[in-house]
Design a protein around this nucleic acid. Structure first.
Length: 435
RNA sequence: GGUGAGGUUCCCGAGUGGCCAAAGGGAUCAGACUGUAAAUCUGACGCGCAAGCUUCGGUGGUUCGAAUCCACCCCUCACCA
């Protein structure tokens, strides 16, 4: 890491979408430790990888000596951010949101350091300063600073206002004011002078800058991160099996690792810049070397390792690599009994066939059994796979005629070490069945 | 409150009495080719191994037969007040 400033590093990584006055921000950051914040709204019981860039960016700031505040939106999560959302969203009830807040607090805490003296991180909840504000006071003291004319001109709500067939409720429309109030409060109470967020947050951030200037008389700054896009135009962070969560009980380290490993070539070097702490020069070197080499690039492996380590630690990474090695090396016969036991513990989906079906195993079609095991969404998919010899159990491929032969297939004689069956459907889906 | 437009299978979107489990596209899954890529080609794609079963906002009705017609209700949007 040479003489690069934080901003230069962020820019080299493509991590800056917009910011307020580059020169002044650069100067401000050079003056000493800056307190900054980023908000995370509880919309589920875990964050997903969409929040990873902001989380890692907080960490990047902290590594440069700044003090990060992770804000969990106990209040804003009750309202719902309309920014660039096509539709009005359903409200979640208080208790649910409160539960999510607690989980997010823990999750967010993994990424920043709470024990680094002066610039130790803090976690705050905007419910703390909003729940007791009374409506009239809010309207008079805060609302008065916002012009509806300006608010409806914001790009982030434009499509909801202009577009045929959609609309926006007053509740969601007010979201921007709440977020602005957060910034102003954090500025007043904790000396926070910078807010970062996704590029969709720009409108909300500038609102807070304006409010801090008017109410606190302080100049504060904003910086947004780019929307993560994929070259094929599909949405980042989703796979066939759903969202990639940061919580290991929702997305296992193995599945997480696999997600990154399957990053498209066209995206992988960009993602290395976004999601890892590897120096940009190092990433460029990997890019060049991959370009020279025939066959499989190295970048996906590096990306998967780095990000899995950041989110799930060395242990999670080791588990993910163990499973990957076992399943994709092609040599599953070489696995020891201990290895099989380890696979299940490491997060390879597993089912106890005997416990689940017992005597009815003989009448259970493979289609049902494998759907239950989570290998497909419907029996049709398994049927299709069977017809194409894509169902492989302990190295043996089965066809459509074997559909009703579960009892024979899962006989003890066929099991590895008397109880394990490694099932593969297609090229990438695996699970462990035991008897 | 008034007027108008709508609510179709994961998404978009056709379908206005039988030929509709419902066109087309996207997404997704599987196969070939590969690098656990991309692109391309092939097949699948409501549920069910199958016989068969259940869908077109909801409820009732008309009809031999309804996603399609009628009534009421719910929801969304736009404009007007």
């Amino acid at each position: 890491m040479s003489e690069m400033t934080l901003l230069q590093d962020l820019q080299a990584r493509g991590l800056v979408a917009q910011m307020t006055s580059e020169e002044e921000l650069e100067k401000h950051l050079a003056e000493g430790s800056v307190s900054l914040y980023c908000g995370f709204d509880p919309t589920a019981d875990s964050l997903h990888i969409g929040s990873l860039v902001p989380l890692l960016t907080l960490k990047r700031f902290q590594e440069y000596g700044h003090k990060p505040f992770a804000l969990v939106g106990g209040a804003t999560g009750l309202i719902g951010d309309p920014s660039f959302k096509a539709q009005e969203r359903k409200l979640n009830d208080d208790a649910t949101v409160a539960g999510w807040v607690e989980k997010l607090k823990k999750q967010v805490s993994q990424f920043v350091n709470f024990d680094s003296g002066e610039n130790s991180a803090e976690v705050v909840n905007n419910l703390d300063w909003t729940q007791n504000v009374d409506v009239l006071a809010f309207l008079r003291d805060v609302g008065k600073h916002f012009s509806v004319n300006q608010m409806i001109a914001k790009e982030s709500v434009k499509q909801r206002i202009d577009r045929e067939g959609e609309g926006i409720s007053f509740t969601e429309f007010t979201y921007m004011i709440l977020q602005s109030y957060d910034f102003q409060q954090l500025n007043a109470e904790h000396g926070v002078t910078l807010q970062i967020g996704g590029s969709d947050q720009w409108g909300n951030i500038t609102g807070g800058i304006e409010l801090s200037r008017r109410k606190n008389g302080n100049q504060v700054f904003g910086l947004t991160l780019p929307l993560i896009t994929k070259s094929d135009g599909t949405k980042f962070g989703k796979t066939e099996s759903g969202t990639i969560w940061l919580d290991s009980s929702k997305t296992s380290p193995y599945a997480f690792y696999q997600f990154w490993l399957s990053t498209a070539d066209a995206d992988v070097y960009r993602f290395l810049r976004y999601f890892t702490f590897l120096p940009v020069a190092e990433i460029d070197r990997i890019d060049e070397e991959d370009a020279q080499r025939q066959g499989r690039p190295e970048a996906q492996g590096v990306l998967a390792r780095e990000v899995t380590r950041l989110v799930h630690g060395e242990e999670g990474l080791a588990a993910a690599e163990r499973i990957t090695q076992a399943l994709f090396s092609g040599d599953t016969a070489a696995l020891s009994e201990d290895d099989y036991r380890q696979l299940a513990q490491d997060g390879l989906p597993s089912t106890d066939v005997k416990a689940a079906y017992g005597d009815t195993l003989a009448e259970t079609p493979l289609t049902t059994l494998l759907v239950d095991a989570g290998m497909a969404n419907s029996g049709k998919q398994i049927k299709d796979a069977l017809q194409r010899n894509a169902v492989v159990i302990n190295g043996q491929a089965y066809g459509a005629e074997d559909n009703m032969k579960a009892a024979e297939i899962f006989a003890e004689a066929n099991a590895r070490f008397g109880s394990y069956f490694l099932v593969k459907v297609g090229k990438k889906k695996h699970c462990l069945l035991t008897i």
